[in-house]
């Protein structure tokens, strides 16, 4: 991948504290369009916190987020989406009790009429939902079915399709494959690959699965205890580096010895 490209999003010295607890301590990273940027690290490293700050769920304590050269300050999720950040959360932010369509358009319903009391255009919304899901490889038979009745992979696709449809330039995926079966994992990876091929979308992928990361990531950043402990291009990093950094810098070899003993 060429370094001559301009990053779509630059994160500089981001600090996030929850009271006395420092969840992120000066994190910096750049993400380029058409690239999958793998964000790796142990449990509690701060990955989810980082993307929640990017998505406007938590305000940053200090530091800056620059999107397309413009400084972004998000105090609501709406502002982040408007700036082009589409987030697919670990919990997917879906309401299992309502229909696929109602979830696809949640918060951005197509409506006619005054304010929040405008009538939703259900037919049009159903049509778009089916189309957009089909575009990234899932055919749903009934857009009125409750999301609770969908499979994990289908839910993941719904969340990704939703983010892309609403103009995400930066797609953030928090452990998209963690709860899925083998076949569905591969489907989701293929979906991500498809999105990457579109070329104009920058993807931040959080995963604990080294194999998945190696299959699709172009660039890596490793977090541990709220700090960046390593980063680099896919071709620069060896398999052992990745394993070691993913575990927060501990020597896997040592660990292997310990377990063996």
């Amino acid at each position: 991948m060429s370094d001559s490209k301009k990053p779509l999003i630059e994160i500089k010295d981001l600090v996030k504290r929850f009271g006395n607890f420092t969840a992120l301590n000066g994190v910096s990273l750049d993400v380029y369009p058409g690239e999958v940027h793998a964000l790796l690290g142990d449990n509690g490293a701060g990955k989810s916190t980082l993307i929640k700050v990017l998505a406007g769920v938590h305000p940053a304590t200090s530091g800056s987020i620059i999107i397309d050269g413009k400084e972004g300050k998000f105090s609501t999720p709406r502002q982040a989406t408007d700036a082009g950040i589409g987030t697919v959360y670990q919990d997917l932010a879906l309401n299992a009790l309502t229909s696929v369509t109602r979830n696809f358009f949640l918060g951005r319903e197509i409506k006619k009429g005054p304010g929040a009391f405008g009538l939703m255009q259900m037919k049009e919304m159903n049509r778009i939902t089916i189309e957009e899901m089909a575009k990234i490889g899932i055919n749903i038979s009934n857009p009125e079915q409750p999301v609770g009745t969908m499979s994990g992979g289908q839910r993941q696709t719904l969340a990704i399709a939703r983010a892309i449809y609403f103009g995400a330039k930066i797609l953030i995926l928090d452990e998209p494959t963690s709860a899925l079966g083998q076949k569905q994992q591969m489907e989701v990876l293929k979906t991500i690959k498809d999105v990457q091929k579109l070329g104009h979308i920058a993807i931040i992928l959080i995963t604990h699965n080294e194999i998945h990361a190696r299959l699709i990531a172009d660039r890596y950043t490793f977090l541990s205890l709220g700090e960046v402990i390593g980063s680099g291009l896919a071709e620069e990093l060896g398999g052992d580096d990745i394993k070691r950094l993913m575990a927060g810098g501990a020597e896997i070899g040592d660990l292997r010895d310990e377990l063996g003993a």
């Binding site: 987030t87 919990d91 932010a93 879906l94 309401n95 009790l97 109602r102 918060g107 929040a116």
Partner: peptide, 18 residues
């Protein structure tokens, strides 16, 4: 839709800007 999602999954609703 906002009422249903507020009660159904509060954090999901908030994350989607409801």
């Amino acid at each position: 839709n906002w009422i249903y999602s507020t009660g159904g999954n509060l954090s999901a609703a908030q994350a989607n800007g409801v």
